[in-house]
């Protein structure tokens, strides 16, 4: 404490832009503390397609159980599409794509990407079997077990992507760890419901339409909750590319839900189709906003240093810094004694 107070104000540059209030973080030539992710455009598409495919499997299975075969067939098709796109995105983003099978060398619960790879493999296989039966009457025996398995695995497949992002040092992802899975769940429900609504005759699209509206509302609410939790750290969601994508996502999701609620009940008319399309696009834009916001928060050392220094000031740090020498002897305290 005394050391900082003594030289406080020594290197305070005037006119610094406000980042995280009160912290006035210092940095090394303004350079980032953590690395920006190396992930490229495939990853936000994957965040979207995995959720779309996973939630669609659940929708398809329940539609089947409810005797709504048209909706079930369409939802299985959407699910299969999502399951086909997802691994392509993930593999093409690897630095060494030919080594993609190394993902299945081990299973580690500390690694959301490891868990997710296994979930994706399991869901993908089950959805393929279910869709083959629903559309071609193939593999009926295999698909009997595969359908509920696909629906079951599809749920965590849609939400684990929150853990994928949250288990990093990226400030806007790590601090939103409680809300991110719910944002992704909302987007998954909205996009799965909207896609199935667009493909299904109005007579059979009721559940899909309701799912789309429910999902859109949940996505909007969870996003607001996330930004509230982030507080001053939510700034990237109001700036630059992430800000623009975030506003676009809100407009698309809210506008699409309005159109679908107003005009979707009667027929598969233009308003309903447009509304469904907007909800799907809104879910994709929301993923992209979260992705970009992560990069923006990683690139600015203030977002990393500010909250950490604030924890130190409040006496809530984990204690990487130690200023006082040990009393008396030179002996180092035994492990775990501090």
């Amino acid at each position: 404490m005394s050391a900082r107070d003594r030289d406080g104000g020594r290197r305070r540059e005037g006119g610094e832009r406000t980042m995280v209030p009160r912290a006035e973080p210092r940095s090394y030539y303004g350079r980032p503390v953590i690395k920006e992710p190396v992930w490229t455009w495939q990853i936000p598409i994957y965040l979207f397609s995995g959720g779309l495919g996973g939630a669609s499997a659940g929708l398809a299975y329940l539609a089947e159980r409810a005797g709504n075969d048209e909706l079930a067939r369409n939802a299985w098709a959407v699910s299969l599409g999502g399951m086909a796109v997802s691994p392509l995105m993930l593999i093409s983003d690897l630095g060494r794509p030919l080594r993609f099978l190394n993902m299945l060398r081990v299973l580690k619960v500390t690694s959301p990407m490891s868990v997710g790879s296994w979930l994706l493999a399991a869901t993908g296989g089950a959805v393929a079997a279910a869709a083959a039966d629903a559309w071609m009457g193939r593999l009926p025996r295999l698909s009997r077990g595969a359908r509920p398995a696909a629906a079951l695995a599809g749920m965590p497949l849609s939400t684990y992507t929150g853990a994928l992002l949250a288990s990093t040092a990226v400030p806007v992802w790590g601090e939103a760890r409680r809300e991110l899975p719910f944002v992704f769940a909302g987007g998954a429900a909205a996009s799965a419901g909207a896609a199935a609504t667009a493909l299904t005759s109005a007579r059979n699209a009721g559940p899909a339409r309701r799912l789309a509206l429910l999902g859109a509302a949940a996505e909007l609410a969870a996003t607001r909750a996330m930004e509230r939790r982030l507080g001053a750290l939510a700034e990237p969601y109001r700036r630059g590319a992430a800000g623009a994508l975030s506003r676009l996502a809100t407009a698309l999701t809210a506008g699409g839900a309005g159109l679908l609620a107003g005009g979707g009940r009667r027929s598969r008319g233009a308003p309903a189709l447009a509304g469904a399309g907007m909800i799907v696009a809104g879910a994709l834009a929301e993923r992209w906003a979260i992705f970009r916001a992560g990069f923006q928060s990683a690139a600015d050392p203030g977002y990393t240093v500010g909250p950490q220094r604030e924890r130190v000031r409040r006496g809530e740090s984990e204690g990487a810094e130690r200023r006082a020498p040990a009393r008396g002897t030179q002996a180092y305290p035994a492990a775990g004694s501090q």
């Binding site: 659940g58 409810a66 899975p181 998954a188």
Partner: peptide
């Protein structure tokens, strides 16, 4: 949180029916 969100998603799909 992932588990809770997955359960909420399943409940949401069921509610739609």
């Amino acid at each position: 949180a992932v588990g809770a969100a997955a359960a909420a998603l399943a409940a949401g799909i069921a509610a739609a029916f």
